[in-house]
Design a protein around this nucleic acid. Structure first.
Lengths: 178, 178
DNA sequence: TATTGTTATACTCTATAACTATA
DNA sequence: TATAGTTATAGAGTATAACAATA
């Protein structure tokens, strides 16, 4: 029972509705942030996290859940630093660590962009939901998130490259594999 | 009442839980598709849609909901065509239109990749949900999706560029503005 | 030796604008 | 004139690997 290779029609419906809804929401939110603050959603998340923390964070702390590679964060942080929205300084406690703090300009930007951000989520996501829906959705999605956070980070073996039939779907020749 | 610039704590919780959950789910799914089929999620969606349609689709039909620019679809379609996963031919009915069809290799790839895809969503998303949760979530997210689909496509004025205080957060000089 | 973060590099993907061809 | 699609181009973003410095 419950074939692991199959989803019931209800599960399929949930999966597609969820992915499509969030895709549209992400797209709308990205646009709003770009128009009103000239930042991406990732950049907004980083700044918002610093505002919420109300203190400096290390790069590792800042990355958690927002970005999936160290270099990705360094890239974004250096852009935001260049734009004067945050500061970086090496930690006195641990000279390896970098402490990231938000600047006044950074806080101001978050404050300027947040109302529009909220309006978009309200209009797209919350408008059709009753208080009961909201309560149920909170219960469910909180549970899902905590479940996902707790999962082991999917396999440890080598990735990429696989002996499948298809020749691979990439643009160029792509034959370097260092 | 209900200040449009504010979200209640429950709404904030829903918003964050939803965005973070789907972000993790997307990441996991992208990895699985890359490892098992060497395709991206967008590419998977395009192929899956062709399988589901069980007939040829025009580029416009195929794009709907998956991709937000015409050229983006042309790009992906040309990759998939090059990889032998789909075909393109101009429509006899309307010579402007391109009919896209899936190849045997394309169908095979979807079939090969789908079980793992389902296992990932099952493990990450559905594992912690009861039948009741599932029913409620379907009801809610279907409503949200239909609501979003029905919304007018957010403003028509010119976009990008804005006279905000921040100097903008980009990498290079970026001073060409055609 | 393990951990924190940065850099170099390569590549994927997306979007805008200009263009072609058909309706 | 409007619509379907492609092409050229630019640049944003991401990930891997090699690296440096500190614990």
């Amino acid at each position: 029972m419950t074939d692991p290779d199959t989803l019931g029609p209800r599960q399929l419906g949930v999966y597609f509705a969820l992915m499509e809804s969030v895709s549209m929401l992400q797209h709308a939110v990205e646009q709003q942030l770009r128009v009103e603050g000239d930042i991406s959603y990732v950049q907004f998340q980083l700044l918002a996290r610093l505002v919420a923390a109300n203190s400096q964070l290390t790069m590792t702390q800042l990355a958690d859940g927002v970005v999936y590679s160290r270099s990705g964060l360094t890239y974004q942080a250096s852009l935001l630093e260049k734009a004067g929205l945050l500061t970086r300084a090496s930690s006195p406690d641990d000279e390896r660590a970098t402490l990231v703090g938000i600047t006044d300009a950074g806080s101001t930007l978050v404050g300027r962009v947040l109302p529009g951000h909220i309006q978009v989520t309200r209009r797209l996501l919350f408008e059709p939901l009753s208080d009961g829906d909201l309560k149920r959705l909170e219960d469910i999605m909180t549970r899902v998130r905590d479940h996902m956070r707790a999962l082991p980070p999917r396999s440890a073996g080598p990735r990429r490259r696989r002996a499948g039939p298809a020749p691979g779907v990439q643009s160029g020749p792509r034959d370097h594999e260092p």
